[in-house]
Each structure stands twice: as C-alpha cells, then as structure tokens.
Design a protein around this nucleic acid. Structure first.
Lengths: 236, 236
DNA sequence: CGAACTCTTTGCGCCGGCGCAAACCTTGGC
DNA sequence: GCCAAGGTTTGCGCCGGCGCAAAGAGTTCG
C-alpha cells in the first residue's frame, strides 16, 4: 500500500510530478486485482474510468463486425490503457482481458480531469503517450500494408521482447504467455500461417516455446528476417 | 489577414479559446503559401514546427526501407499535422506534400509550448485530436488485417468523401485529386488491383472520375460493399 | 490546339497465404 | 501424476491479389 505512490512515479503518465502530487494521484485511484482471464471492459461499453497496470499483463483487442479480431497491444506494469476513450466518444474502442493474474489502478473521468487541472503536466504526458502510440500504430499500418507475414511476425516478436532485443545478443524472452492465435491476431495473419512460420523457426533453433512463453535464441536471425533479408528458401 | 483569428476558431486544436487567445495564437503563427507539389518536410527531418492547413490539401505519407509507401492521411482546412513529432522524438515520421495550391500556418515548438502554458485548454484539445487519430489508425489496422481489398477501398472512399457520405443518398464527391496509386497506397493494395476494382465500379455506374477527382454516384452500393455484403460475383 | 507526359487499363501467369480437417501434443486442474 | 481440454501441427487444395508488360486514355503544358 505505501508502495503505491512510488510505483506511480515510474509511469509515463505521471512523469515530472512532485511527491505530494503523486500521493494525491495515488489516493484518488482505485486499486483492483484481476485474476487471469478477467474481462475488465468490452468494446462499445461506456467508459467511465481510465486504467493503468500495476502488475501483470492485459490484452487489448478490437473485434470487427463478423468475428475477426485484431490485438491492438499488450499492456504491462506502468502502462495505461482505456484512457483515450474518455477524450473521444466516451466508449471503449476495444476489449481488455487480463492474460495472467494482474493488479490495476483506475481513476474516474471527473477525478482525472481534476488531476489534470491541478497538475497540467499530466496533460502533456498524455499527449506524449498518445503521440508515441499513434506513431507505433502508423508503423504497424505500413508494415501490414507492405510487408510479408514472416517479417511482420519477426518484428512483432522483437517488439514484444522489449527494447533489449534491439541490440543485445543474449536470449530474449517474452515475459507473458502467448498462443499462436494471439501472435496471428497481432500480425494480421491466420493461426495456421503463424504456426507454420514459428515451427520453422523453432526447428532452425531461432526460438522456443515453453508454457506458452516464447524465447528468442538467435536474435541475429530474427532481426535479419525482420529487416527483410530473405530466409534460405532460395538456397539449394 | 483579419480573417485569420476567425479561421483558427474553427480548428479543433483551438476549440474553447477566447477571442483574445485566438488573436494571440494567430499573431504568433507564420503563414506560408505552398504551391501544388511543394514538399513541406520529409520523413526523418528534425521537427521544429507544428502545422495546420488553412486552405488546400496536404498528403502525409510514410516510406518503408525499400521504397514501399503508405499514405497516412490527407489534411484539409482546419486540420493540423506534424504536431506529434514535437512530443515524441523531435523528428517528422512522414513526408508532407501539397496536393494542390495550399496555405498553411505554423508555430515553432517553443511558441506552441508557451501557448499551451498560457491556454491549457490547447493541451486537452491535443489529447482529443491524438485520441481520435489513434482510434482511426487502429480501425484501419483492423481493416487491413482482416478485410479484403474491395472493402478497404470502399471504406476509404466513404471516409474521404466526408461525413455526409455516411447517411445521405446524393452524389458524394472527394474534393481533391487522387491517382489510382494514391488510393492503392492508402489501402495497402497495388496500383493494379485498385485500378481493376475502381474500373469495375465505374462500369457499374457506382463512381466516376474526372480530372483525378472521384465522385460516388451510388452511395448505397459502396456502403454495401464496405459492410462486406459480397458483390454479384457469385450470381449467374 | 496539339504534343508530350503521366496516369490508367488489362491480359496473363504465378504464388503467398488462407482455410478445412484430422491427428497430435502440451498444459493446467484436480 | 493423471486426464480432459485446449492449443498446435501439417497435408492438401484453392484463390485473391500481385507484378510485369504493353497498349490506351486523359491531362497538362507550351
């Protein structure tokens, strides 16, 4: 409990706030625990709160009219979600489910607005976060429009494995469980195609999966595929 | 010249500002005329200004490593662009070109921050704009991931024809010139596929093009295709 | 008003990825 | 540690859309 304000300090949404401000923020939020598989909200529901993950992992996904699904993003500790809804039409544009046992903190809309009023820095932080996500979304759009499935999956794995996966050469693990279907739904592919590609990489020793958790063993190879250098298909 | 403050009042970025505030905003901006084809900025360049269109139309596009292009959006009067760059890594993430003769107004970063400081409402407006775009981007992502090319093109045409295209039944025109390549680059398709689909619709009398400007004559049909009710292919 | 340019159309062949079905394997619950 | 449930793999056939090439408009200049 006394940890709370300190944890908030690490959130991008509250960067630059004083200790008192953080205490204020912490005091006005509601903490909730979300056992694995909890549906926190669904697409189209009225949005009355904005959320942030303290521990665990949420899956944010958007459904099309006829069942098609796209996973928009995974939310980990310190990241917020369901916030843009408050500033647009007041309805959540996606579903939120906890992938593993998780803890979240949330603020009602009036409270958040009041906090912004009291600490304008929060508004700027919000712009920064939205800007970063917008940029990421546009990059994904370009990928989806112009790149092949294997490249998109490679990119996605690198992104999910965290910033470390961009330089190092050690094994990089994705810290939460993912099904083939999840991976497919993130990349705009089918379960079958995702399975075939990942199995190929597994046979080649590039990656492995245990308990739905994926580890990249050959970062160099995955990076090479992500950058579009074709795999060995064309070699004898 | 004296019109400027009034024009700014219509911009979403300056909603809720007083007349004096608008005059302040207008006075600190720089107005520039951009003949057709002017490249205002390119991807990767350092971003020192944020922009808004007063008249005309800009095309914002993102290039991949090997020449692939995605058109992110078209910017019309009253809309802003090149703004998120100031709040992320300070580099423009895309190219901006004027499609027709245009006029823009822009503010330097320090000036914009000063304005936000003086009129915090601007920060909230920024969050709203970014939120709306983020939502749109995510919807496009889902479309791109799960829908076929003809549906995506139909959707895009409806979006470009403006809000009126969603209800009315009159002809809806897209107010600026578009090549087949442009349409393809917005939808993640190839020039050839876009041409084939549009020609089919033209033959059926759903749309027509003159001087690169497209008009939808059968909104009902285009809406039907966008919603996924298959065309007559399967009928005898 | 006509010439040059750019954009558009279309035939043709090909292939990446989809999607079903069925067997197989892993995983989590008890 | 066992068993049921759920996730994964893989063969096979198919098709939407790509991509080249070359001819055919439409558009924009001088």
């Amino acid at each position: 409990m006394p940890m709370r304000a300190q944890q908030l300090a690490g959130m991008r949404l509250f960067v630059g706030l004083s200790a008192e401000a953080l205490a204020d923020v912490a005091a006005t939020g509601r903490v909730q625990s979300l056992p694995k598989g909890t549906i926190l909200f669904t697409q189209g529901t009225a949005a009355d709160r904005c959320h942030a993950v303290i521990a665990g992992r949420m899956r944010i996904s958007q459904a099309g009219v006829e069942g098609s699904q796209l996973i928009v993003r995974f939310i980990g500790p310190g990241e917020m979600f369901g916030t843009m809804a408050l500033f647009t039409d007041g309805r959540y544009p996606a579903d939120a489910v906890s992938l593993i046992d998780s803890i979240e903190i949330s603020w009602t809309e009036p409270v958040l607005l009041e906090l912004i009023h009291r600490y304008p820095q929060i508004a700027l932080n919000l712009v920064r976060i939205a800007g970063a996500r917008l940029r990421e979304a546009q990059e994904r759009l370009r990928e989806l429009a112009t790149e092949q499935v294997d490249r998109r999956i490679a990119h996605m794995l690198l992104r999910l494995a965290g910033p470390g996966a961009l330089q190092g050469n050690m094994d990089a693990a994705i810290a939460f469980p993912l099904t083939r279907q999840d991976i497919a739904s993130m990349c705009g592919a089918t379960l079958y195609t995702a399975s075939r590609i990942l199995k190929t990489w597994e046979r080649a020793g590039y990656v492995s999966t245990h308990h739905r958790r994926l580890t990249i063993h050959q970062l160099v190879e995955i990076r090479r595929i992500a950058e579009g250098h074709r795999s060995q298909k064309t070699q004898p």
